[in-house]
């Protein structure tokens, strides 16, 4: 199981298969024209396009979170909790005003207790979320593609070792081991950089066997194709064949997998932060906001609702886009 999905535990054996099933058979011949066809198909899929735009906006927000919050005028680190600048009810510590203190200055209101601006906190949360999701996806890809390629191409003992290792990893109670590992590392150092690295490691490392298996399967069948045989008989080296013949043919599924893995790791980071083993303040994180909001959700439901919505929209956008990409790349697709 990988860490993904809303309940980290919900890992997707099922999802995995759902993905595999659409990936049947490599599209060997197509070459460039396949990409052209795919792009044409994708352009016709309005939902995927809208999702693509949302993803682009999300990335812009994450990259320029500092600039944007400056323009907006509120840092999430600023606290509006003591007189005379307090935005909180002094008796209850809850935001003054309706809907969690939404106002023309604080567009999405402020947090209970500390009175921090929620919009700018969400923007920085997007940054944390995307950094972790993209780097851990990169780690999964690096490990999964290279090992999958080696296993599928060379077969023999390399395949045995790699496949067995991946099987073992897939049978790990990953979530428990991840929480344990992060907890233990926190005894040793509290460095923020290390925290980021450990989270990226547990998400990326325990998730790589999924991509590894897919790549291996693809490579196994591609290496038997005529055009590979042809290259081989012409004296091409293994490296050349892998680089020029195999990799271009597995890029499609890898791309689809990447788009669908990023949201899973976003949920993974949020889940770890929710459990208190992810990111800590002052680093903003959506999961951490949800965890905190759980203390006040009966009184200030907006505080729960907003980070939840942020996660939902982002993850949904990636999922729809990935879905659209898969359909677009699938020769059998009717779209």
């Amino acid at each position: 199981m990988s860490l993904p999905k809303g309940e980290l535990e919900v890992v997707g054996e099922s999802e995995q298969v759902a993905l595999d099933s659409s990936e049947q058979g490599p599209r060997s011949i197509a070459g460039r024209s396949l990409w052209a066809i795919a792009w044409r198909r994708l352009r016709r899929n309005k939902a995927a396009l809208v999702s693509g735009v949302i993803i682009i906006i999300l990335v812009i927000v994450a990259v320029f979170a500092g600039v944007l919050t400056n323009l907006y005028g509120h840092s999430y680190l600023t606290q509006h909790n003591t007189a005379p600048n307090s935005l909180l009810d002094p008796a209850t510590n809850m935001p003054l005003g309706a809907f969690g203190g939404i106002s023309s200055t604080h567009w999405l209101g402020v947090t209970p207790v500390l009175g921090q601006d929620i919009l700018s906190m969400l923007m920085f949360g997007a940054r944390s979320s995307l950094i972790i999701a993209s780097l851990s996806t990169a780690l999964s890809l690096l490990l999964g593609v290279s090992l999958g390629l080696i296993a599928g191409y060379f077969r023999g003992w390399a395949d045995t070792v790699i496949s067995r290792t991946m099987d073992v990893l897939l049978s790990f109670p990953t979530l428990l081991l991840s929480i344990s590992l992060i907890t233990v590392v926190s005894f040793i150092t509290t460095s923020l950089l290390v925290r980021f690295c450990v989270i990226i490691f547990v998400l990326g490392f325990f998730g790589f066997p999924y991509i590894g298996r897919i790549v291996r399967g693809q490579v196994l069948s591609i290496r038997e194709k005529e055009f590979v045989d042809a290259a081989r008989s012409l004296g091409a080296s293994n490296g050349w064949i892998m680089a020029k013949e195999i990799i271009p043919n597995v890029i499609g599924p890898i791309l689809v997998y990447t788009t669908l893995t990023i949201p899973n790791y976003m949920l993974g980071e949020a889940g770890l932060s929710y459990l208190g083993v992810g990111l800590n303040p002052p680093t903003a994180s959506w999961g951490q906001m949800l965890s905190d909001a759980g203390n006040y959700f009966q009184i200030d439901p907006m505080y729960l609702f907003l980070p939840g919505l942020a996660i939902f929209i982002s993850v949904m956008a990636f999922n729809i886009f990935g879905d659209g990409l898969r359909d677009a790349l699938d020769p059998k697709s009717t779209r």
Binding site: L77, Q79, N81, P281, P282
Partner: peptide, 9 residues
């Protein structure tokens, strides 16, 4: 975490 944030500020 809230105590930390308040103190940091």
């Amino acid at each position: 975490p809230k105590v930390f944030s308040a103190m940091q500020t």
